[in-house]
Simulated assay, not measured.
Amino acid sequence: MNARKSREKQERDVEAVLDELYTTPPPGFVARRETLVAAAKTAGQADGARRIHAARRPTLAAWAANLLLRSQPEESRQFLELGQALREAYDALDADGLKELSAQRRRVVAALSRQAAQVAREAGHQLSEPAQQDLEATLRAVLADPDAAEQWAGGRLTSGLTPPSECRAGTAPPAKRPGSRSRPAAAPSRARASNDELAERRRARQEQLDRAQEAAEAAEQRLREERARRADVDAELRRARERTEEARRLMSAAEERMRQTRQEYRQAESDRQEAEERSRSAAEAFARAEREARKKAQDLRRLTAGTP
């Protein structure tokens, strides 16, 4: 039991390491991977070290998509739900609903793409125009293709995803070809059954569209809230930078005043020492003069006393 728990813990640790590795910017991916491989070997996790070493460096667009998934989990979950609803709506062939959801799809893809680019910039890497296009194609693929959605949800893309060329979510259903023949009218009982089935399909389709609508609106609302929050954070960061710059300016001025004060102190100290030296010299000269004056006075008194 303990051995099994130990293996499960090691497996969780390796999974966490891989999740962290795939959010490492591509230029530092290999160096970080080798560091993690060495750490796994030191911990006695040979299998984990092999799995980590097998990880391939992602492209810049794939890295940005992985980073978006990890840094914005709620928006990513709603985006995956929207993709599922779009695919279900396409299967139902509801042209009006698809038209509305397609517009929402374009808005959400554009908004998430911008958000991913912002997250990438904050991580120190500007997405080029080709990388931005690959990122948008990846997000469109996630909406259109369940396999692509599953790959992105894993958070370990190594390259961008390509939307399927046919039956993409958000495209209009195929129109009826001209000249096609209508089927003969069904018997009344079959017609009623068909009507009931059609009504049930319409009800289920409407529920799917409602869920998709709610998911898209929630995603857009979340994006608006995050945009507003980011604006507040950016404003606070700007104010903090201004305060830091002002404090740096004041500190530089204080350091300059301190430097000048030290210089003045050293000069004053030098002047004091010179004045003390002159004072000692003057005191010694005064003492010699005083002794000489006393001696001369004594000599004068002796001479005066001996005069007849």
Rank of each mutant, 00 (worst) to 15 (best):
M1A: 13
R7D: 12
Q10N: 09
R12W: 03
L18R: 14
E20L: 14
Y22F: 14
Y22Q: 09
Y22G: 07
T24N: 10
P25F: 05
P25Y: 03
P27R: 15
A31H: 07
T35D: 10
A43C: 07
A46L: 12
A46H: 05
A49T: 01
R51L: 15
R57Y: 00
T59W: 04
L60H: 01
W63I: 09
A65W: 01
L67V: 06
S71P: 00
P73M: 15
E74H: 07
F79S: 05
L80W: 01
Q84V: 13
L86Y: 02
E88M: 12
Y90D: 02
Y90W: 09
D94H: 02
L101T: 01
A103F: 11
A103Y: 05
A103N: 13
L112V: 13
A120L: 09
E122L: 15
H125C: 09
Q126D: 08
E129Y: 02
P130H: 05
Q133V: 12
P146N: 09
D147A: 14
A148K: 03
A148N: 06
Q151M: 10
L157D: 04
T158Q: 08
L161W: 02
A175H: 03
R183W: 00
R183M: 10
A186K: 15
A191S: 15
R192H: 03
R192Y: 00
R192E: 08
R192V: 15
A193C: 07
E197S: 11
E197M: 12
R202L: 11
A204W: 02
L209P: 01
A212Q: 01
Q213M: 11
A215W: 01
A215D: 00
E217Y: 02
E217G: 05
A218F: 02
E220W: 02
Q221W: 03
R227K: 14
D232V: 10
E236H: 07
E236Y: 01
L237Q: 12
R239D: 07
R239G: 01
R241M: 08
R243H: 03
E246W: 00
R249S: 10
R249T: 02
S252Y: 01
S252I: 02
A253S: 08
E256H: 04
R257M: 11
M258Q: 10
Q260G: 09
R262I: 14
E269Y: 08
D271C: 11
E274R: 14
R278H: 01
R278W: 00
D299S: 11
L300E: 10
A305Q: 09
T307R: 08
